Computed example of a mutant assay.
Amino acid sequence: MKLGLQLGYWGAQPPANHRELVAAAERSGFDSVYTAEAWGSDAYTPLAWYGSDTERLRLGTSVLQLSARTPTACAMAALTLDHLSGCRHIVGLGVSGPQVVEGWYGQKFPKPLARTREYIDIMRQVWAREAPVTSAGPHYPLPLDGDGATGLGKALKPIVHPLRNDIPIFLGAEGPKNIALAAEIADGWLPLFFTPRLADQYNGWLDEGFARAGARNTRETFEIAAVAQIVLTDDRDAAYAAIKPFLALYMGGMGSEDTNFHAEVYRRMGYSDVVDEVTALFRSDRKEEAAAIIPDAVVADSAIVGDEAHVREQIGVWEAAGVTTMLVSPGSVAEVERLASLIQ
Protein backbone atom coordinates (compact mmCIF):
# COMPACT_ATOMS: atom_id res chain seq x y z
CA MET A 1 0.00 0.00 0.00
CA LYS A 2 1.18 3.51 -0.88
CA LEU A 3 0.05 6.87 0.48
CA GLY A 4 -0.75 9.96 -1.55
CA LEU A 5 -1.23 13.43 -0.07
CA GLN A 6 -4.53 14.82 -1.34
CA LEU A 7 -4.38 18.61 -1.13
CA GLY A 8 -7.68 19.08 -2.96
CA TYR A 9 -8.82 22.51 -4.12
CA TRP A 10 -8.75 25.77 -2.18
CA GLY A 11 -11.57 27.22 -0.15
CA ALA A 12 -12.09 30.97 0.12
CA GLN A 13 -8.36 31.52 0.67
CA PRO A 14 -5.19 29.57 -0.13
CA PRO A 15 -4.30 27.07 2.63
CA ALA A 16 -1.44 28.24 4.82
CA ASN A 17 0.37 24.96 5.44
CA HIS A 18 0.35 22.98 2.19
CA ARG A 19 4.05 23.54 1.51
CA GLU A 20 4.88 22.11 4.95
CA LEU A 21 2.59 19.11 4.35
CA VAL A 22 4.23 18.38 1.01
CA ALA A 23 7.72 18.55 2.55
CA ALA A 24 6.62 16.20 5.33
CA ALA A 25 5.11 13.78 2.81
CA GLU A 26 8.38 13.72 0.87
CA ARG A 27 10.40 13.05 4.04
CA SER A 28 7.98 10.44 5.35
CA GLY A 29 7.93 8.21 2.30
CA PHE A 30 4.60 9.16 0.71
CA ASP A 31 4.37 8.08 -2.93
CA SER A 32 2.58 11.09 -4.38
CA VAL A 33 0.84 14.43 -3.92
CA TYR A 34 -2.41 15.38 -5.65
CA THR A 35 -4.28 18.63 -6.29
CA ALA A 36 -7.83 19.18 -7.50
CA GLU A 37 -10.05 21.87 -8.99
CA ALA A 38 -13.71 22.85 -8.83
CA TRP A 39 -14.62 26.43 -9.75
CA GLY A 40 -11.97 28.36 -7.85
CA SER A 41 -8.30 27.39 -7.74
CA ASP A 42 -6.96 25.39 -10.65
CA ALA A 43 -5.06 22.14 -10.18
CA TYR A 44 -1.87 22.71 -12.18
CA THR A 45 -0.57 25.93 -10.64
CA PRO A 46 -0.32 24.74 -7.01
CA LEU A 47 0.89 21.30 -8.12
CA ALA A 48 3.82 22.86 -9.97
CA TRP A 49 4.45 25.35 -7.14
CA TYR A 50 4.59 22.77 -4.36
CA GLY A 51 6.11 20.10 -6.58
CA SER A 52 9.12 22.29 -7.26
CA ASP A 53 10.17 21.70 -3.64
CA THR A 54 10.25 17.92 -4.12
CA GLU A 55 12.55 15.42 -5.78
CA ARG A 56 10.77 12.09 -5.42
CA LEU A 57 7.01 12.49 -4.99
CA ARG A 58 4.85 11.76 -8.00
CA LEU A 59 2.73 14.80 -8.91
CA GLY A 60 -0.89 14.00 -9.69
CA THR A 61 -4.18 15.75 -10.32
CA SER A 62 -7.32 14.38 -8.73
CA VAL A 63 -8.92 15.62 -10.78
CA LEU A 64 -8.54 17.96 -13.75
CA GLN A 65 -11.88 18.82 -15.34
CA LEU A 66 -12.02 17.90 -19.02
CA SER A 67 -14.04 20.95 -19.96
CA ALA A 68 -11.54 23.36 -18.41
CA ARG A 69 -9.00 22.76 -21.19
CA THR A 70 -8.98 21.52 -24.73
CA PRO A 71 -7.22 18.15 -25.00
CA THR A 72 -4.18 19.71 -26.67
CA ALA A 73 -3.95 22.38 -23.93
CA CYS A 74 -4.11 19.67 -21.27
CA ALA A 75 -1.47 17.63 -23.10
CA MET A 76 0.78 20.73 -23.25
CA ALA A 77 0.45 21.36 -19.52
CA ALA A 78 1.12 17.69 -18.78
CA LEU A 79 4.24 17.39 -20.92
CA THR A 80 5.53 20.66 -19.46
CA LEU A 81 5.13 19.50 -15.86
CA ASP A 82 6.51 16.07 -16.75
CA HIS A 83 9.68 17.77 -18.06
CA LEU A 84 10.01 20.05 -15.03
CA SER A 85 9.52 17.18 -12.58
CA GLY A 86 11.66 14.57 -14.32
CA CYS A 87 8.84 12.23 -15.37
CA ARG A 88 6.86 12.37 -12.13
CA HIS A 89 3.50 13.57 -13.44
CA ILE A 90 0.16 11.69 -13.31
CA VAL A 91 -2.75 13.21 -15.23
CA GLY A 92 -5.97 12.60 -13.29
CA LEU A 93 -9.03 13.52 -15.37
CA GLY A 94 -12.75 13.76 -14.69
CA VAL A 95 -15.81 14.96 -16.60
CA SER A 96 -17.38 16.83 -13.63
CA GLY A 97 -21.14 17.40 -14.04
CA PRO A 98 -23.49 19.48 -16.18
CA GLN A 99 -23.89 22.19 -13.54
CA VAL A 100 -20.18 23.01 -13.69
CA VAL A 101 -19.50 22.11 -17.32
CA GLU A 102 -22.34 24.17 -18.75
CA GLY A 103 -22.62 26.76 -15.96
CA TRP A 104 -18.95 27.54 -15.35
CA TYR A 105 -17.12 26.53 -18.53
CA GLY A 106 -19.91 27.17 -21.02
CA GLN A 107 -19.36 23.79 -22.66
CA LYS A 108 -21.81 21.03 -23.55
CA PHE A 109 -21.98 18.09 -21.15
CA PRO A 110 -23.68 15.24 -23.09
CA LYS A 111 -21.73 12.15 -24.24
CA PRO A 112 -19.18 12.24 -21.37
CA LEU A 113 -17.79 8.76 -22.12
CA ALA A 114 -17.28 9.49 -25.81
CA ARG A 115 -15.74 12.86 -24.99
CA THR A 116 -13.34 11.23 -22.54
CA ARG A 117 -12.24 8.62 -25.06
CA GLU A 118 -11.62 11.23 -27.77
CA TYR A 119 -9.87 13.59 -25.34
CA ILE A 120 -7.39 10.94 -24.19
CA ASP A 121 -6.70 9.80 -27.75
CA ILE A 122 -5.70 13.35 -28.70
CA MET A 123 -3.49 13.73 -25.62
CA ARG A 124 -1.62 10.55 -26.44
CA GLN A 125 -1.14 11.70 -30.03
CA VAL A 126 0.51 14.86 -28.70
CA TRP A 127 2.88 12.91 -26.45
CA ALA A 128 3.70 10.33 -29.13
CA ARG A 129 4.77 13.15 -31.48
CA GLU A 130 4.74 10.76 -34.41
CA ALA A 131 2.63 12.90 -36.73
CA PRO A 132 0.62 16.12 -36.72
CA VAL A 133 -2.30 15.78 -34.33
CA THR A 134 -5.67 15.23 -35.97
CA SER A 135 -9.09 14.17 -34.80
CA ALA A 136 -12.22 13.43 -36.79
CA GLY A 137 -14.31 14.56 -33.82
CA PRO A 138 -17.17 14.95 -33.27
CA HIS A 139 -16.28 16.50 -29.91
CA TYR A 140 -12.76 17.85 -30.53
CA PRO A 141 -12.25 18.02 -34.31
CA LEU A 142 -8.69 18.92 -35.31
CA PRO A 143 -8.05 20.91 -37.41
CA LEU A 144 -11.34 22.74 -36.88
CA ASP A 145 -13.35 23.14 -40.06
CA GLY A 146 -16.92 23.79 -41.08
CA ASP A 147 -19.36 26.48 -39.98
CA GLY A 148 -17.70 29.42 -38.26
CA ALA A 149 -14.14 28.30 -38.99
CA THR A 150 -11.73 30.06 -41.34
CA GLY A 151 -10.59 26.81 -42.91
CA LEU A 152 -6.99 27.86 -42.28
CA GLY A 153 -6.35 25.50 -39.37
CA LYS A 154 -3.27 23.32 -39.68
CA ALA A 155 -2.49 20.01 -38.03
CA LEU A 156 0.56 20.46 -35.80
CA LYS A 157 3.03 18.48 -33.72
CA PRO A 158 4.17 19.84 -30.34
CA ILE A 159 7.31 21.98 -30.52
CA VAL A 160 8.59 20.43 -27.28
CA HIS A 161 9.65 16.80 -27.44
CA PRO A 162 7.91 15.03 -24.51
CA LEU A 163 10.12 13.03 -22.17
CA ARG A 164 7.49 10.27 -22.17
CA ASN A 165 4.86 9.21 -24.65
CA ASP A 166 3.12 7.27 -21.89
CA ILE A 167 2.47 9.85 -19.16
CA PRO A 168 0.04 8.00 -16.86
CA ILE A 169 -3.61 8.95 -17.10
CA PHE A 170 -6.00 8.13 -14.25
CA LEU A 171 -9.75 8.63 -14.53
CA GLY A 172 -12.00 9.92 -11.79
CA ALA A 173 -15.00 7.64 -12.32
CA GLU A 174 -18.08 6.84 -10.27
CA GLY A 175 -20.51 4.98 -12.53
CA PRO A 176 -20.16 1.43 -13.90
CA LYS A 177 -19.58 2.49 -17.51
CA ASN A 178 -17.01 5.10 -16.60
CA ILE A 179 -15.13 2.69 -14.33
CA ALA A 180 -15.02 0.11 -17.14
CA LEU A 181 -13.75 2.85 -19.47
CA ALA A 182 -10.97 3.65 -17.01
CA ALA A 183 -9.84 0.02 -17.05
CA GLU A 184 -9.92 -0.02 -20.85
CA ILE A 185 -8.13 3.21 -21.81
CA ALA A 186 -6.46 4.61 -18.67
CA ASP A 187 -3.66 3.61 -16.34
CA GLY A 188 -5.55 4.02 -13.08
CA TRP A 189 -8.86 4.74 -11.38
CA LEU A 190 -9.50 7.56 -8.90
CA PRO A 191 -12.57 6.62 -6.83
CA LEU A 192 -13.92 9.28 -4.48
CA PHE A 193 -16.25 7.34 -2.16
CA PHE A 194 -14.70 3.88 -2.16
CA THR A 195 -15.97 1.15 0.12
CA PRO A 196 -14.22 -2.24 0.34
CA ARG A 197 -17.65 -3.77 0.92
CA LEU A 198 -18.39 -3.39 -2.80
CA ALA A 199 -15.03 -4.68 -4.06
CA ASP A 200 -16.66 -7.52 -6.02
CA GLN A 201 -18.92 -5.02 -7.79
CA TYR A 202 -16.02 -2.72 -8.67
CA ASN A 203 -13.96 -5.65 -9.89
CA GLY A 204 -16.76 -6.75 -12.19
CA TRP A 205 -16.88 -3.32 -13.81
CA LEU A 206 -13.08 -3.14 -14.06
CA ASP A 207 -12.86 -6.65 -15.53
CA GLU A 208 -15.30 -5.60 -18.25
CA GLY A 209 -12.84 -2.89 -19.30
CA PHE A 210 -9.75 -5.09 -19.03
CA ALA A 211 -11.43 -7.66 -21.30
CA ARG A 212 -12.06 -5.21 -24.14
CA ALA A 213 -9.96 -5.44 -27.28
CA GLY A 214 -6.98 -3.13 -27.09
CA ALA A 215 -7.23 -2.58 -23.33
CA ARG A 216 -4.20 -0.64 -22.16
CA ASN A 217 -3.53 -2.49 -18.90
CA THR A 218 -4.20 -5.61 -16.92
CA ARG A 219 -5.23 -5.73 -13.29
CA GLU A 220 -1.58 -6.28 -12.37
CA THR A 221 -0.42 -3.04 -14.02
CA PHE A 222 -3.47 -0.90 -13.19
CA GLU A 223 -3.51 1.47 -10.22
CA ILE A 224 -6.42 2.32 -7.93
CA ALA A 225 -5.74 5.53 -6.02
CA ALA A 226 -8.73 5.93 -3.72
CA VAL A 227 -9.57 8.98 -1.65
CA ALA A 228 -9.53 7.74 1.94
CA GLN A 229 -10.67 9.76 4.92
CA ILE A 230 -8.48 8.42 7.71
CA VAL A 231 -8.91 9.88 11.19
CA LEU A 232 -6.72 8.60 13.99
CA THR A 233 -8.74 9.18 17.15
CA ASP A 234 -10.22 7.64 20.26
CA ASP A 235 -13.34 9.78 19.83
CA ARG A 236 -15.17 8.29 16.87
CA ASP A 237 -18.39 10.22 17.55
CA ALA A 238 -16.62 13.57 17.20
CA ALA A 239 -14.83 12.44 14.04
CA TYR A 240 -18.03 11.19 12.44
CA ALA A 241 -19.75 14.49 13.27
CA ALA A 242 -16.91 16.39 11.58
CA ILE A 243 -17.14 14.29 8.40
CA LYS A 244 -20.92 14.42 7.99
CA PRO A 245 -21.16 18.02 6.66
CA PHE A 246 -18.75 17.06 3.87
CA LEU A 247 -20.87 14.03 2.99
CA ALA A 248 -24.07 16.10 3.14
CA LEU A 249 -22.60 18.56 0.63
CA TYR A 250 -21.60 15.87 -1.85
CA MET A 251 -24.66 13.71 -1.28
CA GLY A 252 -27.26 16.49 -1.25
CA GLY A 253 -25.74 19.68 -2.60
CA MET A 254 -23.58 18.86 -5.60
CA GLY A 255 -24.94 19.01 -9.13
CA SER A 256 -28.67 19.46 -9.42
CA GLU A 257 -31.39 17.75 -7.43
CA ASP A 258 -32.03 15.33 -10.29
CA THR A 259 -28.43 14.92 -11.53
CA ASN A 260 -25.89 14.36 -8.78
CA PHE A 261 -23.36 11.65 -9.61
CA HIS A 262 -22.01 11.58 -6.05
CA ALA A 263 -25.50 10.88 -4.75
CA GLU A 264 -25.79 7.99 -7.19
CA VAL A 265 -22.66 6.45 -5.67
CA TYR A 266 -24.39 6.34 -2.29
CA ARG A 267 -27.56 4.95 -3.85
CA ARG A 268 -25.49 2.08 -5.30
CA MET A 269 -24.07 1.57 -1.82
CA GLY A 270 -27.64 0.97 -0.61
CA TYR A 271 -28.43 4.34 1.00
CA SER A 272 -31.17 5.69 -1.27
CA ASP A 273 -33.43 6.67 1.62
CA VAL A 274 -30.61 8.58 3.31
CA VAL A 275 -29.76 10.35 0.03
CA ASP A 276 -33.39 11.43 -0.43
CA GLU A 277 -33.63 12.83 3.09
CA VAL A 278 -30.26 14.59 2.95
CA THR A 279 -31.02 16.10 -0.46
CA ALA A 280 -34.41 17.43 0.64
CA LEU A 281 -32.97 19.06 3.76
CA PHE A 282 -29.82 20.39 2.10
CA ARG A 283 -31.73 22.01 -0.75
CA SER A 284 -34.15 23.56 1.74
CA ASP A 285 -31.15 25.33 3.28
CA ARG A 286 -31.26 23.06 6.34
CA LYS A 287 -27.67 21.97 5.96
CA GLU A 288 -26.95 21.21 9.60
CA GLU A 289 -30.00 18.96 9.80
CA ALA A 290 -28.94 17.27 6.55
CA ALA A 291 -25.58 16.39 8.06
CA ALA A 292 -27.05 15.32 11.39
CA ILE A 293 -29.37 12.68 9.93
CA ILE A 294 -26.55 10.79 8.20
CA PRO A 295 -26.06 7.55 10.18
CA ASP A 296 -22.61 6.76 11.53
CA ALA A 297 -22.65 3.54 9.50
CA VAL A 298 -22.76 5.56 6.26
CA VAL A 299 -19.63 7.44 7.29
CA ALA A 300 -17.86 4.27 8.39
CA ASP A 301 -18.58 2.60 5.04
CA SER A 302 -16.08 4.79 3.18
CA ALA A 303 -13.93 6.31 5.94
CA ILE A 304 -11.50 4.85 8.46
CA VAL A 305 -11.95 6.29 11.93
CA GLY A 306 -10.40 4.88 15.08
CA ASP A 307 -7.20 4.11 16.94
CA GLU A 308 -3.97 2.90 15.34
CA ALA A 309 -4.86 -0.78 15.59
CA HIS A 310 -8.19 -0.23 13.84
CA VAL A 311 -6.65 1.95 11.13
CA ARG A 312 -3.89 -0.58 10.43
CA GLU A 313 -6.48 -3.35 10.12
CA GLN A 314 -8.66 -1.34 7.74
CA ILE A 315 -5.72 -0.35 5.55
CA GLY A 316 -5.22 -4.07 5.04
CA VAL A 317 -8.89 -4.44 4.12
CA TRP A 318 -8.63 -1.68 1.52
CA GLU A 319 -5.48 -3.24 0.09
CA ALA A 320 -7.19 -6.63 -0.17
CA ALA A 321 -10.03 -4.89 -2.04
CA GLY A 322 -7.59 -3.77 -4.75
CA VAL A 323 -6.57 -0.27 -3.66
CA THR A 324 -2.91 0.45 -4.45
CA THR A 325 -2.73 4.02 -3.09
CA MET A 326 -4.78 5.72 -0.39
CA LEU A 327 -5.17 9.47 -0.95
CA VAL A 328 -5.29 11.03 2.51
CA SER A 329 -5.70 14.61 3.73
CA PRO A 330 -3.83 15.06 7.03
CA GLY A 331 -4.10 18.53 8.49
CA SER A 332 -0.66 18.78 10.09
CA VAL A 333 2.91 17.60 9.73
CA ALA A 334 2.44 15.39 12.78
CA GLU A 335 -0.54 13.69 11.13
CA VAL A 336 1.46 13.11 7.94
CA GLU A 337 4.21 11.42 9.93
CA ARG A 338 1.79 9.37 12.00
CA LEU A 339 -0.05 8.07 8.93
CA ALA A 340 3.23 7.19 7.23
CA SER A 341 4.26 5.12 10.25
CA LEU A 342 1.16 2.93 9.86
CA ILE A 343 2.20 1.45 6.51
CA GLN A 344 5.94 1.04 7.12
Rank of each mutant, 00 (worst) to 15 (best):
Y9F: 11
Y9V: 07
Q13L: 12
P14H: 07
N17R: 14
A23V: 13
A24F: 02
A25Q: 01
R27A: 15
D31L: 14
D31C: 05
V33K: 02
T35W: 05
A38G: 10
W39T: 07
S41A: 13
A43V: 11
Y44S: 10
Y44C: 08
T45W: 13
T45F: 12
Y50L: 15
E55Y: 08
E55M: 12
E55A: 14
L59A: 03
L59W: 01
G60R: 01
L64C: 13
L66H: 10
S67F: 15
A68E: 06
T70M: 15
T72P: 02
A75H: 05
A75C: 06
M76A: 14
A77T: 04
A78V: 05
A78K: 02
L81G: 01
D82F: 12
H83P: 00
L84C: 03
G86F: 13
I90H: 12
L93N: 10
G94R: 02
V101L: 03
G103N: 11
W104R: 11
G106M: 11
K108Y: 07
K108P: 01
F109N: 00
A114V: 08
R115V: 06
R117F: 03
P132H: 09
T134C: 00
Y140K: 08
P141F: 07
P143G: 15
L144M: 13
D145P: 00
G146R: 06
D147C: 04
T150Y: 07
K154N: 06
K154E: 15
A155K: 11
K157D: 06
I159N: 00
H161M: 11
L163W: 06
I167P: 05
P168D: 00
I169F: 02
A173I: 01
N178H: 14
I179H: 09
A186C: 15
D187A: 10
G188C: 05
G188I: 03
L192E: 10
F194N: 10
L198V: 05
A199T: 14
D200P: 08
Q201H: 02
D207V: 05
D207T: 07
R216H: 04
R216D: 05
N217E: 09
F222W: 14
A225G: 11
V227K: 09
V231K: 12
L232W: 09
L232F: 03
L232D: 01
T233G: 02
T233L: 07
D235N: 15
D235T: 10
A241G: 10
A241V: 11
L247M: 14
Y250K: 01
Y250R: 04
S256I: 03
D258Q: 12
F261E: 02
V265M: 03
Y266A: 01
R267N: 13
R268Y: 10
M269L: 15
Y271N: 10
Y271T: 06
A280L: 12
A280Y: 09
R283C: 08
R283N: 11
R283E: 07
A290R: 07
D296E: 13
V299E: 06
V299G: 04
A300M: 08
S302M: 05
V305W: 04
V305N: 08
D307G: 15
H310E: 15
E313Y: 12
Q314A: 02
E319F: 00
A320E: 14
G322N: 07
T324S: 15
T325D: 01
M326V: 04
V328T: 11
S329M: 14
V333L: 02
I343N: 04
